[in-house]
Computed example of a mutant assay.
Amino acid sequence: MILSFFKRLNIWSKERFPLINLITAIVMVLSTKLFLTSTPLVLWGVADIAAVLFIYLHFFILRVLDEHKDFESDKIFYPDRALQKGIIQLQEIRWMGWLAYGAQVCLVVFVLAKDLQTYILYALVLTWTFLMFKEFFVGSWLRPRILLYSTLHLLVSPLMLIFVIQSLTLPLLSVKTGVVLLFSLASGFLFEISRKNKTPEQDQKGEISFSLAWGQGTTALVIFNLSCLNSLLMILICLQAGISQWATILLAIPSSLLNMFHQKRLRSFANTPSLAFLKKAQDLSGLVSIY
Rank of each mutant, 00 (worst) to 15 (best):
M1C: 02
I2W: 10
F5C: 13
R8G: 13
I11C: 12
W12L: 13
S13F: 03
K14R: 15
E15M: 10
P18D: 06
I20R: 12
I20A: 13
N21G: 08
I23V: 11
I26N: 04
V29Y: 03
T32S: 14
T32H: 09
S38M: 14
L41Y: 15
L41F: 15
V42Y: 00
V46W: 00
I55V: 08
Y56K: 13
L62G: 12
R63K: 14
R63H: 09
L65G: 00
D66L: 05
Q84S: 09
K85Q: 06
I93P: 02
G97F: 02
G97A: 02
L99N: 09
G102H: 01
Q104R: 08
L107D: 03
F110R: 08
A113D: 12
L116Q: 12
I120Q: 14
L124N: 10
T127N: 07
W128H: 14
T129P: 03
M132T: 08
F133D: 07
F133Q: 08
R143D: 06
P144Y: 13
R145S: 01
I146D: 13
Y149I: 04
S150N: 15
V156G: 04
S157T: 09
L161H: 01
L168I: 13
L168C: 09
P171N: 03
S174I: 02
L190Y: 11
L190N: 15
F191L: 10
S194D: 12
K198A: 04
Q202Y: 07
K205P: 04
S209H: 05
G215N: 15
G217V: 14
T218D: 10
L221P: 03
L221Y: 09
L221T: 10
N225P: 01
N225L: 11
C228E: 10
N230L: 07
N230V: 05
I235Q: 15
I237E: 05
L239S: 13
L250V: 12
L257G: 00
L258T: 01
R265A: 00
L266A: 01
R267H: 09
S268D: 11
S268L: 10
F269L: 03
S274F: 03
L275Q: 13
F277P: 00
K280S: 11
S285R: 03
S285M: 06
G286Y: 01
